[in-house]
Simulated assay, not measured.
Amino acid sequence: MNEETTEKWFDPDATTFGDRLAGARELANMTQAQLAKRLGVKKKTLEDWENDVRGPRAMRLSMLAGLLNVSLLWLLTGEGDGPGDPSEATSYVRGAHMLLDEIRAISAQMQLNAERLARVEVELHGLLKEDDA
Protein backbone atom coordinates (compact mmCIF):
# COMPACT_ATOMS: atom_id res chain seq x y z
CA MET A 1 0.00 0.00 0.00
CA ASN A 2 1.28 3.45 -0.73
CA GLU A 3 0.85 6.39 1.63
CA GLU A 4 -1.94 7.89 -0.43
CA THR A 5 -4.16 4.83 0.11
CA THR A 6 -3.17 4.10 3.71
CA GLU A 7 -6.22 5.90 5.09
CA LYS A 8 -8.68 4.49 2.53
CA TRP A 9 -7.14 1.19 1.50
CA PHE A 10 -10.59 -0.41 1.73
CA ASP A 11 -12.28 2.04 -0.66
CA PRO A 12 -13.17 0.13 -3.87
CA ASP A 13 -12.60 3.25 -5.98
CA ALA A 14 -9.18 4.03 -4.49
CA THR A 15 -7.60 0.61 -4.27
CA THR A 16 -6.48 -2.28 -6.41
CA PHE A 17 -6.63 -5.98 -5.72
CA GLY A 18 -3.02 -5.79 -4.55
CA ASP A 19 -3.80 -2.94 -2.13
CA ARG A 20 -6.69 -4.85 -0.60
CA LEU A 21 -4.63 -8.03 -0.36
CA ALA A 22 -1.74 -6.23 1.35
CA GLY A 23 -4.05 -4.34 3.70
CA ALA A 24 -6.01 -7.43 4.71
CA ARG A 25 -2.76 -9.35 5.23
CA GLU A 26 -1.43 -6.59 7.47
CA LEU A 27 -4.66 -6.51 9.49
CA ALA A 28 -4.34 -10.28 9.89
CA ASN A 29 -0.87 -9.64 11.35
CA MET A 30 0.86 -11.78 8.76
CA THR A 31 4.05 -11.11 6.86
CA GLN A 32 4.27 -11.84 3.17
CA ALA A 33 6.44 -14.86 3.97
CA GLN A 34 3.89 -16.22 6.48
CA LEU A 35 0.95 -15.85 4.12
CA ALA A 36 2.89 -17.29 1.19
CA LYS A 37 3.82 -20.33 3.28
CA ARG A 38 0.21 -20.89 4.36
CA LEU A 39 -0.92 -20.65 0.74
CA GLY A 40 1.85 -22.91 -0.54
CA VAL A 41 3.30 -20.30 -2.90
CA LYS A 42 6.62 -18.50 -3.12
CA LYS A 43 7.00 -15.13 -1.40
CA LYS A 44 7.82 -13.61 -4.82
CA THR A 45 4.44 -14.81 -6.09
CA LEU A 46 2.64 -13.08 -3.24
CA GLU A 47 4.70 -9.92 -3.83
CA ASP A 48 3.62 -9.97 -7.47
CA TRP A 49 -0.03 -10.25 -6.41
CA GLU A 50 0.30 -7.35 -3.96
CA ASN A 51 2.06 -5.25 -6.61
CA ASP A 52 -0.63 -6.10 -9.18
CA VAL A 53 1.94 -7.68 -11.50
CA ARG A 54 -0.28 -10.74 -11.77
CA GLY A 55 -3.18 -12.26 -9.91
CA PRO A 56 -3.83 -15.57 -8.22
CA ARG A 57 -5.88 -18.37 -9.72
CA ALA A 58 -9.35 -19.17 -8.43
CA MET A 59 -8.29 -21.79 -5.87
CA ARG A 60 -5.73 -19.44 -4.33
CA LEU A 61 -8.25 -16.59 -4.34
CA SER A 62 -10.62 -18.70 -2.31
CA MET A 63 -7.84 -19.67 0.09
CA LEU A 64 -6.78 -16.02 0.43
CA ALA A 65 -10.31 -14.92 1.28
CA GLY A 66 -10.56 -17.60 3.96
CA LEU A 67 -7.15 -16.95 5.47
CA LEU A 68 -7.66 -13.18 5.52
CA ASN A 69 -11.23 -13.37 6.75
CA VAL A 70 -12.76 -11.43 3.88
CA SER A 71 -15.26 -12.29 1.20
CA LEU A 72 -14.03 -13.27 -2.23
CA LEU A 73 -16.11 -10.44 -3.68
CA TRP A 74 -14.41 -7.89 -1.43
CA LEU A 75 -10.98 -9.16 -2.32
CA LEU A 76 -11.72 -8.86 -6.03
CA THR A 77 -13.82 -5.68 -6.13
CA GLY A 78 -13.65 -3.97 -2.75
CA GLU A 79 -17.38 -4.50 -2.24
CA GLY A 80 -18.85 -6.92 0.26
CA ASP A 81 -17.45 -8.19 3.55
CA GLY A 82 -13.98 -6.82 4.06
CA PRO A 83 -11.87 -6.85 7.17
CA GLY A 84 -13.52 -5.01 10.02
CA ASP A 85 -12.14 -3.65 13.22
CA PRO A 86 -9.77 -6.38 14.45
CA SER A 87 -11.30 -6.13 17.94
CA GLU A 88 -14.80 -6.90 16.64
CA ALA A 89 -15.99 -10.48 16.81
CA THR A 90 -17.37 -10.36 13.27
CA SER A 91 -14.81 -12.52 11.57
CA TYR A 92 -15.87 -15.85 10.20
CA VAL A 93 -12.88 -17.60 11.73
CA ARG A 94 -13.42 -16.17 15.22
CA GLY A 95 -17.13 -16.87 14.89
CA ALA A 96 -16.44 -20.48 13.92
CA HIS A 97 -14.05 -20.93 16.83
CA MET A 98 -16.62 -19.50 19.21
CA LEU A 99 -19.27 -21.89 17.87
CA LEU A 100 -16.91 -24.85 18.17
CA ASP A 101 -16.17 -23.87 21.76
CA GLU A 102 -19.89 -23.72 22.48
CA ILE A 103 -20.44 -27.12 20.87
CA ARG A 104 -17.68 -28.59 23.05
CA ALA A 105 -19.21 -27.06 26.17
CA ILE A 106 -22.67 -28.39 25.30
CA SER A 107 -21.21 -31.81 24.52
CA ALA A 108 -19.39 -31.92 27.87
CA GLN A 109 -22.57 -30.89 29.69
CA MET A 110 -24.55 -33.54 27.83
CA GLN A 111 -21.99 -36.17 28.84
CA LEU A 112 -22.29 -35.13 32.49
CA ASN A 113 -26.09 -35.20 32.26
CA ALA A 114 -26.00 -38.65 30.63
CA GLU A 115 -23.84 -39.96 33.48
CA ARG A 116 -26.17 -38.37 36.03
CA LEU A 117 -29.19 -39.89 34.30
CA ALA A 118 -27.56 -43.33 34.40
CA ARG A 119 -26.87 -43.00 38.16
CA VAL A 120 -30.45 -41.89 38.86
CA GLU A 121 -31.80 -44.75 36.74
CA VAL A 122 -29.72 -47.30 38.68
CA GLU A 123 -30.92 -45.80 41.95
CA LEU A 124 -34.55 -45.92 40.76
CA HIS A 125 -34.22 -49.56 39.68
CA GLY A 126 -32.79 -50.33 43.14
CA LEU A 127 -35.76 -48.67 44.84
CA LEU A 128 -38.26 -50.49 42.62
CA LYS A 129 -36.62 -53.84 43.41
CA GLU A 130 -36.92 -53.07 47.14
CA ASP A 131 -40.64 -52.33 46.70
CA ASP A 132 -41.16 -55.64 44.83
CA ALA A 133 -39.50 -57.62 47.64
Rank of each mutant, 00 (worst) to 15 (best):
V122I: 06
T31Q: 01
E102W: 05
S87E: 15
L64R: 05
E88H: 14
A28H: 02
M98A: 12
N29F: 03
A89I: 12
L124T: 10
W74Q: 10
L72V: 13
N29S: 07
L46A: 07
E130S: 14
A28C: 02
L124P: 05
K44H: 11
L100A: 09
Q32S: 03
A118L: 04
A118I: 02
G80Q: 09
N51P: 00
N29R: 07
L112R: 15
L117N: 03
L128I: 10
L27P: 00
A96L: 12
V93K: 09
M59V: 06
E130L: 14
L117K: 05
L67P: 02
P56R: 06
V53G: 01
E26A: 02
A118Y: 04
G40F: 10
A22V: 05
H97V: 12
S107Q: 12
R60F: 01
A28L: 02
A58T: 05
L100N: 10
R119N: 05
P86Y: 15
E102T: 10
L75N: 06
Q34E: 14
S71K: 08
A114I: 08
E102G: 05
A96Q: 12
K44M: 14
K37G: 14
E79H: 15
D81L: 15
R38I: 12
L67W: 04
D132L: 13
I103G: 00
L46V: 06
S107P: 02
A114E: 08
M63R: 02
A114S: 08
E26N: 01
E123V: 01
R54T: 07
E115P: 00
R94Y: 14
W49I: 09
M30L: 13
N113R: 10
A58Y: 03
N51G: 04
G23S: 06
E47S: 10
L64Y: 04
L61D: 03
A33Q: 09
S62W: 03
G84N: 07
W74A: 11
G78A: 12
I106A: 14
A108N: 11
L72G: 12
L76F: 10
M30H: 06
T45M: 13
A118S: 02
L61Y: 02
A118W: 00
Q32M: 06
G126T: 06
